[in-house]
Design a protein around this nucleic acid. Sequence first.
DNA 1: AATGAATGAGAGTTCATTCAT
DNA 2: GATGAATGAACTCTCATTCAT
Lengths: 218, 218, 218, 218
Amino acid sequence: MSAQPRTARGTRTRARLLAAAEEVFASAGYHDASIVKITEQAGIGLGTFYLYFAGKQEIFDEVVDDLNARVRHAMTEAARTAGTRLEAERAGFRAFFRFTAEHPALYRIIRQAEFVSPAAQRRHYENIVRSYVHGLAAAQEAGEVRPVDPEVAAWALMGMGELFGMRYILWEAEDRGAGGPRVEIPDRVLDELMGIIQRGLAPAPAPADRPREDASHE
Amino acid sequence: MSAQPRTARGTRTRARLLAAAEEVFASAGYHDASIVKITEQAGIGLGTFYLYFAGKQEIFDEVVDDLNARVRHAMTEAARTAGTRLEAERAGFRAFFRFTAEHPALYRIIRQAEFVSPAAQRRHYENIVRSYVHGLAAAQEAGEVRPVDPEVAAWALMGMGELFGMRYILWEAEDRGAGGPRVEIPDRVLDELMGIIQRGLAPAPAPADRPREDASHE
Amino acid sequence: MSAQPRTARGTRTRARLLAAAEEVFASAGYHDASIVKITEQAGIGLGTFYLYFAGKQEIFDEVVDDLNARVRHAMTEAARTAGTRLEAERAGFRAFFRFTAEHPALYRIIRQAEFVSPAAQRRHYENIVRSYVHGLAAAQEAGEVRPVDPEVAAWALMGMGELFGMRYILWEAEDRGAGGPRVEIPDRVLDELMGIIQRGLAPAPAPADRPREDASHE
Amino acid sequence: MSAQPRTARGTRTRARLLAAAEEVFASAGYHDASIVKITEQAGIGLGTFYLYFAGKQEIFDEVVDDLNARVRHAMTEAARTAGTRLEAERAGFRAFFRFTAEHPALYRIIRQAEFVSPAAQRRHYENIVRSYVHGLAAAQEAGEVRPVDPEVAAWALMGMGELFGMRYILWEAEDRGAGGPRVEIPDRVLDELMGIIQRGLAPAPAPADRPREDASHE
DNA sequence: AATGAATGAGAGTTCATTCAT
DNA sequence: GATGAATGAACTCTCATTCAT
């Protein structure tokens, strides 16, 4: 386990290392992210790194967990204010895409984790699924979502989010070049996506009358 | 560009290198996949590698493109025999999951490509999307799929496929250990997934019943 | 030169450092004995070390000199009560072996000194030789030891002691494992050794008695 | 295990590495003998080292075993031509001292082995003891050596040789400075030493002549 | 066409030592 | 008197690539 600092100065140093590592892992990738680069980015000496982390892998894991906590926080915060489950879903997606735009590190780092730290990667996805399942199960009890297996639905939602984030945030950002305003997912695309999700998860209409299948949305 | 062999013997050597590279990249990851490992796996001399490939990156790209072609072939072959578009989708997913189970390399290698060869990764996803868009557009003309933007729908399908492959094929395989029969996606899970997709993409009911289904959304 | 403590507390700290250093040098070897390990073993802060010692080499030298003084003390104490020189020799050997068993540090540290601090090593051997020479010269005057060059005899005695200590104390201890009672040199071995020494150093018999003492040799 | 070269060039390279390692270990000590120094001394590239040796420890072990074989060869060769056992002993010692003078590496490296490779060190001493025991046992059967435990006698001889080599060869050489002719052990010293050994191991005279030689020792 | 010996830049990591607190 | 955060030179080791055979 990584050593905890015992002084305020140490705490600051450790935090700077984590922030630097996030940046370097995101821009250079795990393997090209040398400890030297991380410490230079953090503005501290090379040896200092090893006062706080046992090695590269360890700080990587911590960065993954940190990003995971932050993205989940952003998503649940956004969803909290929504009315229906579908509004919550839309708000959660928006928050996720926004986080992706602001922290491309999340994306790139999670994918790296495939080989670098499978356990951390799994933790990441499972944490998010857990959030989704929690929300979906509640919505099902309220009759807002049809009784599909919430875990299956959660993976479906997360899969769509993952690739839309890649396609409509990261690729756009790359194509536009480094500078420029934050990329947002186009409303049109988000609408289409939410339409698919909504219809996919909407409760079955009462057998006789299903006149307003989409009435609740928005 | 990689040199093409001029003799039958050379052709065989090159093919062995590609097969070995796929295996080594999948099991060790790009960075730990040394040229020595690849040539040892292929049973040829180290120097020989450079007769056929300019370097590690180049053979990686070729492995990506090769896997991409094979998985698309498997998917379209499976879909070709299906009746409706949704049956085709189901068959395509099945084929994709089967391919994932048989070639975990696909998965692991594509994710690696994020940093190793972004262009190859993008090519991979875009190729698959193109297939989907092709099929969806045709289905829309036939009235089998509602008029969503086929590209958006394609990314949604691919996203779900990607994470379901990870969750229900790769993770299962890991949890079960090395030996054992090929992992299949549980029918129950595939049914639930296809249900969501079907409802999400199903054409709107007859105009008389639902005149303005999407009208409200911004 | 190392700083001398000015308070009782400082004296205690310095002593703890020396004791810790002896232990760590003996178990880990000079190079793997980091200052951190020594200060941890001593239960004091890292920086405190440099209040009392100029560096690693200096504390090493002091440990060597300390062990040297202690082993010589043990040997002369033991020899002091003996009757004849040969009895004194036997008692001295016993004491040396006992010290070796109780302080394997002596051995390991002296051998390390070969490169780490040749001067300290030389001091160690010369100090012991001086003791031996002193005793042998006195015994020669008393007619108990034949008139060999006492320094040559001293080195011979010390050489035997050194390797017997290694072979019959340290190796035995290693072979028996960590726990267990203190290893003693077997009486049989000590008897044989003392027999060789005794005959080697015994005074020539009275001229009348020794008609053919050396007759066999060469 | 260290890789064996497959070509003549490789064989030459490996031999140069071993020779360079012997020199560097002897002059700098194990810990200060970096792989860089060894390869520079050998005149080859750093990376080449790892084609032939798994690491520093491995080449060290091989150097120890190599030196051990050579010193034993020198000793047995010298002893082979001698007449009596005691002449053989004297010739063996001479050869040992000569080898020590020509290859101070032996000495310094064996002492290092205490921590670096205890197994190799033990192998070294046991090999030499075995030689001695072999010779002593034969001499005992011939009545040239008294019936002491040959192993005890062997350790005694080796102990004396070890410290005389240090005192009269290495220290002399150091005191005389780098240049200069090879140091030889002074005849006077060797004579005194052999006298002690001779008397120590000489067979007991006919009972009538020396009735109570061992009576005093307990 | 095929080989494997050779290379050296660059990686992760350690640790004696300094110094502000 | 005591501390521990900070440092960077120096270490061992890896590996993509070159080239003589």
